[in-house]
Design a protein around this nucleic acid. Structure first.
Length: 539
RNA sequence: GGUCCAUUCGUCUAUCGGUUAGGACGCCAGGUUUUCAUCCUGGAAAGAGGGGUUCGACUCCCCUAUGGACUACCA
């Protein structure tokens, strides 16, 4: 049994879009399931559309997602080079072979002439029925062909499709697909202008030479699969031809058409794994990574868009996906991109993270928001910064994760803060909005909440509460809660009124985790300061 | 226009001739809660249409409709 070898072969014409990521993922899962190789090949045969940075982007994206290539331009391998632009000489040899065997021919018709032909003749196709009326090596004498080439005239090499043959493509997902060769056209295989083959030829030659066993690609390639089968035949490689599997497409959520690069930001979600800035226009497209997605969530989400394990299970780690994956369970019809489900997956994966891991992931976002106060922190001051009274970190990283010296600027135990709110966030970034009040004390209060929660006697009651809290030595959540509850009971105050006003003072609005978990974390002094400020401001 | 592919709740899907057509997302309702969320429970929600085949079709076949892809010297 030959070793399974699959390739992902993007064209470096821009950022990789999410449909391409899924295709790569399925290739990867399939290869790893078989203990095979996963190869990256850069298909840069279109010199016109090359975009600088695209290849690096692709490699970085897969590195983030956790798909690693066994061979490729960045890691090497025994079947290189892995950029088609570096394989010119290889292709030329096979072009000559086809020409010599009469399986292909040289054509001089210019793009302009073809364009004219297409507007003049409806449904014009360069094929057996028309090639005799065109300017090519079939209609020109051998000497004239040589003459034109010697004169520097540009030409292309076209495959010579024999009409009226039945071509069978065996597809692992769709079964046998039969087409009559007469509907195929004499596709361009090679362009003299840049001495590069087109996709079709380069693809077949490389897959053969790289000993690819399975071609797993998007359904958009199905119509040209018969051409590819013919090419294997013409080159004499039929017996080692890879198996084909054409994947269903990822469709726009709104209904029509396949998901395209432009859809993402228009519909409010990323279509690229990583953020991308167009080098030409400077236009910025959002990415899953920057949006706050965990790569595991993206992988899991994508894996289930067009494939299912045959049971109700939905959460899979990468090793579990590899174990469960097979091509037989890939569906045949296109899948609309359900962005909401993606959010749900991310939520699930966030819950799986430990508090330490989440705190670590949150740190960059947190620093963005409170970064300016770090300098204040280092000066040993706990002081007013801008309009806000800011809580700051002792020394950035260690104190964030917990301990602090008495009398020093207090760092907040980020790990514990994260633990309190993690089940309510979808993105790592949401942690900021859920926890901002821990770091920045409220100085303004949400108007609606004030109207609803700040009662006529709130100021008086909270003043009294402040007095009670000042007497509390053990400020643990449990103890503080016991004391406060006892006080409320003794005074026969209305529990909700007290607690809601208390929360308003600490948080600034009506949200957040259990109140006494908040007081424990921000500590006695800060709790009292916030109460006093609210009493003054809301009186 | 031509060729090819597809068609189960709004969405992703299970079902491989006999099921009250299952699950998940989303949505709605209720519950938990000192707030907001989370969470829990429940609910509404599907076999495109028409012919066959069969004792019996979501499932097999045909037609129609609809959707999609392709139709470049792009991949």
């Amino acid at each position: 049994m030959k070793k399974t070898r699959v390739r992902f072969a993007p064209s470096p014409t821009g950022p990789l879009h999410i449909g391409g990521v899924r295709t790569a993922l399925y290739n990867y899962l399939f290869a790893k399931k078989q203990g095979g190789d996963f190869i990256l090949r850069i298909e840069d045969t279109d010199s016109q559309r090359f975009v600088p940075g695209a290849e690096e982007y692709i490699i970085e994206a897969f590195s983030w997602l956790g798909l690693s290539f066994d061979e490729g331009p960045h890691v090497g391998g025994n079947y290189g080079p892995y950029r088609q632009s570096e394989r010119k000489a290889i292709y030329k040899q096979y072009v000559d072979q086809l020409l010599k065997a009469g399986k292909a021919y040289i054509a001089f018709d210019t793009p302009a002439q073809l364009e004219a032909k297409r507007t003049e003749v409806a449904n014009f196709q360069y094929d057996a029925s028309t090639r005799d009326a065109m300017t090519n090596s079939l209609t020109l004498s051998e000497t004239e062909v040589q003459q034109r080439i010697a004169n520097g005239e540009q030409y292309v090499v076209r495959i010579k499709i024999e009409p009226n043959q039945t071509i069978v493509v065996n597809d692992l997902i769709r079964g046998e697909v039969k087409v009559n060769s007469s509907v195929l056209d004499d596709k361009v295989l090679y362009k003299s202008a840049d001495e590069l083959p087109t996709y079709h030829l380069a693809n077949i030659v490389d897959d053969h030479l790289m000993e690819i066993t399975h071609v797993i690609r998007g359904e958009e390639w199905l119509p040209s699969a018969p051409l590819h089968v013919t090419l294997y035949d013409y080159l004499g490689w039929t017996d080692t031809m890879p198996q084909f599997a054409h994947l269903p497409l990822l469709l726009k959520p709104e209904g029509n058409g396949k998901l395209s690069k432009r859809d993402g930001d228009r519909l409010g979600f990323p279509v690229f794994p990583l953020q991308w800035t167009d080098p030409q226009t400077g236009e910025l497209s959002s990415g899953y990574r920057e949006k706050g997605y965990l790569p595991e969530a993206v992988v899991n989400f994508l894996s289930l868009l067009g494939w299912n394990p045959g049971n109700d299970r939905e959460i899979f780690s990468m090793p579990e996906l590899i174990a469960a994956f097979n091509l037989e369970r890939v569906s045949k019809s296109g899948a609309k991109f359900d962005y909401k489900k993606g959010e749900w997956f991310n939520h699930q994966y966030i819950q799986q993270k430990s508090n330490e891991e989440l705190a670590e992931l949150f740190l960059p976002t947190l620093k963005q928001h409170v970064g300016a106060t770090l300098a204040v922190a280092l000066s040993g001051d706990r002081s007013v910064f801008g309009d806000h009274d800011c809580f700051v970190f002792g020394d950035h990283d260690c104190s964030i994760l917990g301990d602090h010296e008495e009398g020093q600027p207090r760092g907040l135990p980020l790990r514990e803060i994260v633990a309190l709110v993690k089940e309510r966030v979808t993105y790592v970034k949401d942690l900021w909005e859920q926890t901002a009040f821990f770091f920045i004390a409220p100085t303004e209060y949400d108007e609606k909440t004030v109207q609803k929660r700040w009662k006529p006697d709130s100021a008086e009651q909270l003043t009294e509460l402040t007095g009670v809290l000042k007497e509390v030595d053990d400020f643990s959540a449990q103890n503080t809660e016991t004391v406060v509850m006892q006080w409320i009971t003794d005074k026969e105050y209305h529990l909700g009124n007290i607690m809601n006003a208390f929360r308003l003072a600490l948080v600034g609005e009506s949200k957040g985790p259990h109140l006494f978990d908040i007081t424990e974390i921000i500590g006695k002094n800060e709790t009292i300061l916030r109460l006093e400020r609210a009493i003054v401001k809301l009186k």
